[in-house]
Amino acid sequence: MSASCAWAENRASADDAERSLDQLLRRYYGELNALAFARLRNRDAAADLVQDAIVRFLASCRNGGHGQGGVESPRYFLRAIVANLAIDVARQNRRRGPPVSLDDALHIADPAPLADRAVTARQEYALLRAALDDMPARWRQALLLNRIEGWSHARIGKHLGISSTMVGKDILAALRRCLAALARAG
């Protein structure tokens, strides 16, 4: 039996193979992970890449080693696999663009409403506009000063020459008229 992939090819018992693989991983995992992290700058991606490298290494050993002569040094072969996989990941990232977290992706969405929502909003606006045009001027003015301009009932009352209690009643009546117009259409 050649020295190459001897640790993986030694199939005398499943325990020996498992122990050999465990020794290999304990010996080189940290080094391979550091190499992957240095290239990717992402701990999770580096760990995944090292796992992929180990799987590829094992597949190579099961298929008779690397080329005709087998794997002379598992360490350098694993390092080469990690380096090549890191290059592949970098190329994929350049094609796809940088990865984006879900929280960041929510801010990418187009803030414009969907077409059906825009149509519905225009219809509701037309109904509200018609309801505002049909109500008494004082109701309309009290509602708009309160809801659009943010005026208090007392300030609106002074402006219109009525009590703040009457302002509240006018705003309530105007809101009821608007809601009734929307309810008739919906």
Score class of each variant (00 low, 15 high):
45 A>N: 05
163 S>M: 03
152 S>H: 07
163 S>E: 04
31 E>D: 12
146 N>G: 05
165 T>Y: 00
176 R>W: 07
63 N>R: 15
82 V>H: 00
160 L>C: 09
78 L>A: 06
95 R>W: 10
37 F>K: 05
90 A>Q: 11
66 H>N: 02
25 L>I: 15
115 A>L: 13
91 R>D: 05
108 I>G: 04
164 S>D: 15
120 T>W: 02
53 A>I: 00
16 D>Y: 08
151 W>H: 14
70 G>D: 06
81 I>W: 01
25 L>R: 10
44 D>R: 09
55 V>Q: 05
134 D>M: 06
108 I>Y: 09
99 P>H: 03
82 V>D: 01
107 H>Q: 04
147 R>Q: 12
181 A>V: 07
59 A>M: 10
4 S>R: 09
58 L>K: 06
19 R>H: 09
36 A>S: 06
41 R>V: 03
181 A>W: 05
166 M>H: 07
52 D>K: 03
74 P>F: 00
15 D>A: 15
99 P>Q: 02
47 A>V: 07
134 D>H: 08
96 R>S: 14
26 R>L: 12
126 A>K: 14
28 Y>G: 02
52 D>R: 04
183 A>Q: 10
39 R>M: 08
151 W>T: 06
70 G>E: 03
66 H>V: 00
160 L>Y: 12
112 A>E: 13
61 C>D: 08
154 A>Q: 09
111 P>I: 12
53 A>Q: 00
9 E>S: 14
63 N>E: 14
62 R>P: 01
27 R>S: 10
147 R>G: 03
66 H>M: 01
15 D>N: 08
117 R>N: 02
182 L>R: 14
96 R>Y: 13
176 R>H: 14
103 D>I: 03
171 I>L: 04
180 A>K: 12
118 A>C: 00
158 K>D: 13
104 D>S: 04
62 R>Q: 12
133 D>V: 08
78 L>R: 05
129 R>P: 01
44 D>I: 01
109 A>L: 13
144 L>S: 00
167 V>F: 02
56 R>E: 09
7 W>H: 12
32 L>C: 04
135 M>Q: 11
185 A>E: 12
105 A>D: 03
130 A>S: 15
148 I>G: 02
117 R>D: 11
69 G>H: 13
5 C>P: 09
158 K>S: 08
84 N>D: 13
112 A>W: 00
60 S>A: 15
23 Q>T: 14
182 L>Y: 10
170 D>K: 06
95 R>G: 03
140 R>N: 01
166 M>K: 10
45 A>K: 06
64 G>R: 05
156 I>S: 02
4 S>H: 09
30 G>S: 08
183 A>M: 03
134 D>S: 14
140 R>I: 01
10 N>G: 03
126 A>Y: 08
116 D>H: 10
98 P>L: 14
90 A>N: 07
36 A>F: 04
37 F>Q: 07
92 Q>P: 00
113 P>D: 10
15 D>I: 11
170 D>G: 02
